[in-house]
Design a protein around this nucleic acid. Structure first.
Length: 986
RNA sequence: GGGCGCUUAGCUCAGUUGGCUAGAGCACCAGCUCGACACGCUGGGGGUCACAGGUUCAAGUCCUGUAGCGCCCACCA
């Protein structure tokens, strides 16, 4: 007798145990093996910014499902894990901490110290993130874990940059950035917030040159920028200004002449004065217009927000002071027309909270025209496929713009731009770098300097370079530059640095690159299709010549209970660890698979668990919008802090854990599975493995094996197509609604007999089906699957249908189930379906009349044709067992007893003897309602048949179906009428 | 403003190429401690499939429009 399992599945007992077991057995590792086909996924590397959230749980669960499934299918699966340094986000988090804790800015502590602090932060959060991923059960090859700043990734970054620089794909150009004048740094778009402030809206006029008394009127919210104006634009069709196009106006304060140009994109003639001053260096639209019209760009600002030498008489003044002076001076000149108050939506820096100035600066770019085209081709010709396919449009539309990619960032955390500047003669360079292939240079004519690109920093440490007066570029690369290389950099591109040395952290393993690249599928969310997916394809094609993956699966987003995306700033996230703690990892994973549907993002209402009394307190919308930090429990009246991803604990208040009932489904399923297995294990006395032959099996066995085979095949298809929700539903429905609800119940009869062929066969089938279920569920719920696999191994080591095999040492490495074609048996499925219908009908009658004690047998009469009657009679023991039937009379002439309730089925009529218990008025009412519904349905169905165009156009079998439906409905109505009549008579 | 989606039971969601009485889980109602499971079992109630048109023998499903919601991109002199 096998050791009996506890009544409930305990995930917290199972999880650490199997995690350790899998790790010790090395199941997560993968190494190149030419005899096996690889299946490889590279993880979208989480940011080191902080802990993982629900989106990560979803993303990684789905990847793990694919990896675990393909591993069982026999592929050599590699899941490459890693972390992203996430330049801006990480630096901002660490800077904020330093500011909060030490009241210092990054300029106070310096570049080296800041980078050092961020590395410490990175170490701490990297291990936390990796731990979370492990706890999620992710079967990644942890020994290969990469970080986007580690030496191997850095080498790939350098090679790519160097190659692109040599190919002329990397160039230096001007670009407007968001300038924070307080911190004197550029900030990223996602680091700014918009706030409505009170401002002015001034209207001025410029005198038209060579046309006395003619002026052109314009308005602005930033009068000081007129010092940087290089044109006035009007709409080409605007009758008021048409004659002025091509003439000049004079900016009076600096006495500069600028042209009047026509720009239909910049100017909307119905707004304001219809004329727009153009300041290309300090406004994004004007910048675009300046590029279109080849206007000069005049930068009037110093980094600190004061005016520079281009500000003429206003040089040195703060821009806001200059604004007032400009207005005063224009007024003195009689060119000021008025000012109105206006609410202005102004961009502010997240960090300094001061207004952002658009600021023109030198940046590095990747030329996209040709690169983007190669990436578009890879998708249009099908080398890379999106699932769902519609996301290809997002990708193609974005790449189609072919906008140059700005890759420099004014940050300290990241890959340094490998560029040095030198002002010297080329002869000096040639001499200094004679014979060197790891250094290349190009002349920057505009600034009269050399741009030197080095493949490695050490190249610039050589002796004799002092005379060159090298200046290194202070910027770092856009984080996406290193992320774009992720699929091939992690696999070892560009090959070993030290070919004779063994692979290691400094020396990549070239075999992996050749074996696993291109990877199989990328699993990610739709918001980084452009930022990341497109760029990976670009660099993959550029560096390796092959796109980095064959498939891109885009999964839905998890929203909060109110339909909004989760984000740290909204405070509406859910910590996966809370869910794991409350429901178990399998429940979390099942829940994730279950929400991964084709079309729709999924809402996840969440509740706080009161840390004092355990009451579930649903999160309300106002808790989020007001950033509520304290909630009073409605039950015990004690205060607590709502759960979620908060930056730090609050020492004053206990923090609530979070719960969401959406994970009960998975928890309950794991427990159901556990108990089904528990029941089977309790009934395995005398189990002997043996082959089964479906032809020899009774109906119920053939039925469940047919259903099992269908389910396994369906799940395979569903996973192939990335239909995770359907796959989860398939195994759930099969296990619960077919195996547990019907098959196990039917098998109880045979098990109860202590010995004999019947019992033995039932054991084999029960064990064989359970074995299949555990394999099928393993990718989704690996922990409960492993627990039961091991328990089953003790009681039934050799098992399986049709032929038993010794169990593998882990369900993780068991083969993915496929079953012989003869398992599919439509006839058996049909017979059991008919029986289920009858059982349900009898149960319904029992419930309706309150005869729920199954020991009170009901006598059932079924009128049906001979075939159906035979089928049902053959299942007589089950009908008796499952519905508490005493005698079953079945046949074409089954006589209806007096005072009977009926249930109407498409294929047969059943009559249940109720021994005088009928509630006549209630029964009458029920039948009348049923009658009117059936009559309505019949009318509709008949009308359809009489319609000539239906009979003419529809396929013959459909028309035939319709005829059968009408006949059937007619029969049913006749039966109901008959019953109703008898009820009235009786 | 452009693009992509979404709107089905009180809640969260399924619903294949149009085709038999629109499904599930939770919640609700009634009844069950019967030897796997109360994280359970049996049965039940509950839906004008956002709205308005159209195509079709037939529309939750296809088309057009309207409203609301979400996301991405662009932009707001």
């Amino acid at each position: 007798m096998a050791t009996e399992l506890p009544k409930q599945y305990d995930p917290h007992e199972a999880q650490p145990k199997w995690l350790q077991f899998w790790t010790e057995h090395g199941y997560f590792h993968s190494r190149p093996d030419p005899n096996r086909e690889p299946f490889c996924i590279v993880i979208p590397p989480p940011n080191v910014t902080g802990a993982l959230h629900m989106g990560h749980a979803l993303n990684n669960t789905l990847q793990d499902i694919l990896i675990r499934w393909r591993r069982m299918q026999g592929y050599n699966t590699l899941w490459m894990p890693g972390i992203d340094h996430a330049g801006i986000a990480t630096q901002a988090v660490v800077e904020r901490r330093i500011r909060d804790e030490e009241k210092k800015t990054r300029h106070d502590i310096g570049r080296d110290e800041l980078v050092c602090r961020i590395w410490k932060w990175k170490d701490q959060y990297e291990s936390r993130i990796l731990r979370q991923l492990r706890e999620l059960g992710c079967s990644a090859d942890w020994s290969r874990t990469r970080f986007t700043l580690d030496p191997i990734c850095a080498r790939a970054v350098r090679h790519t940059f160097f190659k692109m620089f040599q190919d002329g794909l990397i160039f230096r150009g001007k670009r407007l950035v968001n300038w924070d004048t307080a911190l004197q740094t550029a900030v990223a778009d996602d680091e700014i917030f918009h706030e409505t402030v009170k401002g002015g809206f001034w209207t001025f006029r410029y005198p038209v040159k060579d046309s006395p008394n003619e002026f052109i009127r314009f308005s602005t919210t930033r009068p000081e920028t007129m010092l940087g104006d290089t044109a006035v634009a009007v709409h080409p069709d605007d009758a008021r200004y048409k004659h002025l196009i091509g003439k000049f106006v004079t900016i009076p304060l600096v006495n500069r002449d600028i042209p009047i140009i026509a720009d239909p994109l910049l100017v909307d003639p119905t707004l304001g004065t219809g004329a727009v001053k153009v300041t290309p260096a300090h406004d994004a639209n004007d910048y675009a217009s300046g590029q279109r019209n080849k206007l000069p760009m005049i930068n009037i600002l110093n980094p600190d927000g004061t005016l520079n030498e281009n500000g003429g008489p206003y040089q040195g003044l703060d821009r806001l002071v200059a604004r007032e002076r400009v207005v005063e001076d224009m007024e003195k000149l009689g060119l000021f027309e008025g000012r109105e108050d206006r609410e202005i939506d102004l961009a502010h820096s997240d960090r300094s909270k001061t207004p952002i100035e658009p600021y023109l600066s030198d940046q590095w770019f990747v030329k996209m025209a040709d690169l983007a085209q190669t990436a578009m081709d890879a998708v249009t010709d099908g080398r890379v496929q999106f699932h769902p396919a519609r996301y290809a449009k997002t990708y193609l539309d974005w790449l189609g713009e072919k906008r140059d990619w700005c890759i420099s960032r004014q940050l300290w955390w990241g890959h340094r731009i490998p560029i040095w500047y030198a002002r010297c003669s080329e002869a000096q360079l040639k001499k200094a770098f004679a014979g060197r292939t790891d250094v290349t240079w190009r002349l920057d004519e505009e600034n009269a300097q050399w741009l030197i690109c080095a493949l490695d920093d050490s190249a610039m440490d050589a002796q004799g370079l002092q005379s060159l007066d090298l200046q290194r570029d202070p910027d770092v690369l856009d984080t996406w530059f290193s992320s774009a290389l992720w699929p091939h950099s992690t696999l070892g591109w560009p090959g070993p640095a030290l070919p004779d040395q063994p692979p290691g952290p400094q020396n990549p393993d070239w075999q992996s690159m050749r074996y696993y690249y291109p990877t199989s599928v990328l699993v990610t969310s739709r918001d980084i299709i452009t930022l990341w997916v497109a760029r990976m394809v670009i660099t993959g094609l550029y560096n390796v010549g092959q796109a980095p993956f064959h498939h891109v699966y885009i999964h839905p987003k998890i929203l909060d209970g109110f339909g909004e995306g989760m984000s740290k700033s909204k405070g509406n996230g859910i910590d996966p660890l809370d869910i794991i703690e409350r429901y178990g990892t399998d429940a979390l994973r099942f829940g994730m698979a279950h929400v991964a549907t084709e079309t729709q993002d999924s809402r996840m209402p969440v509740a706080n668990v009161c840390p004092h009394c355990g009451t579930l307190v649903p999160v309300k919308q106002e808790h989020l919008s007001m950033r509520t930090r304290k909630i009073t429990c409605p039950s015990c009246k004690k205060p607590f802090r709502p759960g979620g991803p908060w930056p730090a604990d609050d020492p004053e208040l206990p923090t609530a854990k979070q719960a969401s009932e959406r994970f009960e489904l998975g928890r309950n399923f794991a427990n159901k599975l556990w108990n089904a297995a528990r029941f089977i294990l309790m009934n395995l006395d005398g189990y002997k493995p043996g082959a089964i032959r479906v032809q020899d099996l009774p109906i119920e066995d053939r039925w469940i094996l047919s259903r099992l085979a269908t389910t396994a095949a369906a799940m395979t298809d569903q996973l192939e197509g990335y239909h995770f929700a359907e796959a989860a539903r398939s195994i759930y429905d099969f296990t619960w609604s077919e195996f547990c609800d019907w098959y196990i119940e039917m098998a109880k009869g045979r098990l109860a007999r202590s010995a004999g062929e019947g019992r033995s066969a039932a054991q084999r089938v029960l064990v064989g089906v359970l074995d299949g279920i555990l394999r099928l569920v393993q990718p989704i719920m690996p922990f409960v699957a492993e627990s039961l696999w091991q328990a089953l191994g003790e009681a039934a080591f050799e098992r399986g249908v049709p032929n038993p095999d010794p169990a593998s040492e882990s369900v993780m490495i068991a083969p993915w189930p496929t079953y012989p074609a003869e398992f599919h048996d439509a006839a058996m499925e049909h017979r059991i379906a008919r029986m289920q219908e009858l059982v349900r009908a009898v149960r319904e009658v029992r419930n309706r009349y309150g005869i729920t004690d199954s020991r009170t047998p009901l006598n059932v009469f079924v009128r049906a044709n001979a075939t159906v009657a035979n089928d049902l009679t053959s299942l007589d023991p089950f009908i008796k067992l499952l519905a508490g039937v005493g005698t079953l009379a079945c046949g074409p002439d089954a006589k209806k007893p007096p005072q009977a309730a009926t249930s109407v089925s498409p294929e047969f009529e059943s009559y249940v003897s109720l021994q005088g218990l009928i509630d006549v008025p209630a029964e009458k009412k029920r039948l009348e309602k049923q009658l009117s519904e059936k009559q309505k349905h019949l009318q509709g169905a008949q009308a359809k048949l009489q319609n000539a165009s239906f009979v003419g156009k529809a396929p013959a079998e459909v028309v035939q179906q319709q005829r059968e439906l009408v006949t059937e409905l007619g029969n049913q109505i006749r039966v109901i009428e008959e019953n109703l009549r008898e009820l009235q008579d009786g």
